Simulated assay, not measured.
Amino acid sequence: MARNFKPYMITQFQSFIHTLDLKRKINHIQIHHTWEPRKSDYKGESTIASMWRYHTETRGWQDIGQHFTVAPDGLIWDGRSLEKDPAGITGYNRGGIMFEMIGNFDQGEETLEGEQLDAIIAAVRVLLLKFNLSTNDIVFHREHSAKTCPGTGITRGWFLNEVKNRKIMELNPNSYDNADQWKRIAIDWLYEEGLISAEDWKDNINKGLPLWAEALVLKRIYDKAKA
């Protein structure tokens, strides 16, 4: 049976988490890397679906192991129900929320940087605030396993310093001045409705929709109505 997955931009992820009402007690945040697939293997939702198939069909789990997957392009894909513990660290899953970062971040391999780094740091900050946790509650897979996960190229000290100090895009859309508010709301809506792509969203979110994009949206609405 096929399974669909939903992507979030950082501000969308923040809004989703802030409105969340979980029955399950959250006491830590798990950080993992996929190792495989690598960043260079990423092909959008099909990559997430492949992981889901591996977890459910090969490993026999009820669902994909992680709650969220952070992609190289900065999208945060949903996964396992947040009311269920992750399948991440044997014997240490109770109360956890699990992030899987696509890539092999062992030394000499790929690098956690750019939009992907912004996304994981922003997402972790949102969860720390939501569940009243501290950076001491961030857990690397390798702390309870012989694995290198989330990669020998990522030290705990560096990662926690990024969580505390990294400057990233403003998380709160309400902090934008009034002249920009309508712009962000409209562009977010167009993306959520599938009328513009993630690439279009990134292109336009801080500069407003140019005329070509408005024409493209109208054409896609027309095409949908004809279908």
Rank of each mutant, 00 (worst) to 15 (best):
W61T: 10
Q62I: 03
Q66P: 09
G74M: 05
D78C: 11
D78I: 07
R80N: 07
R80K: 14
S81A: 12
E83S: 11
K84G: 01
D85G: 07
I89C: 05
I89H: 02
T90Y: 05
G91E: 02
Y92A: 09
R94A: 15
G95F: 02
I97G: 08
E100T: 04
G103R: 01
F105E: 10
Q107N: 06
G108P: 06
E109R: 14
E109G: 00
E109T: 04
T111E: 13
E115T: 13
L117Y: 02
L117I: 08
D118C: 11
A122R: 03
A123F: 00
R125G: 13
V126C: 10
L128N: 10
N132P: 00
V139W: 04
F140T: 07
R142G: 02
R142H: 15
E143T: 09
H144V: 05
A146N: 13
A146C: 02
K147D: 12
K147N: 09
K147P: 01
C149N: 13
G151S: 08
T152I: 04
T152S: 15
T155H: 04
T155F: 04
G157E: 13
W158D: 14
W158M: 14
F159S: 12
N161W: 06
N161K: 12
K164F: 02
N165K: 12
N165F: 11
R166Y: 14
R166W: 04
L171Y: 02
N172Y: 06
N174V: 04
S175Q: 10
D177C: 09
N178C: 05
Q181W: 12
Q181C: 03
K183N: 12
I185V: 15
A186Q: 06
I187W: 05
D188N: 15
L190W: 11
E192P: 00
E192S: 10
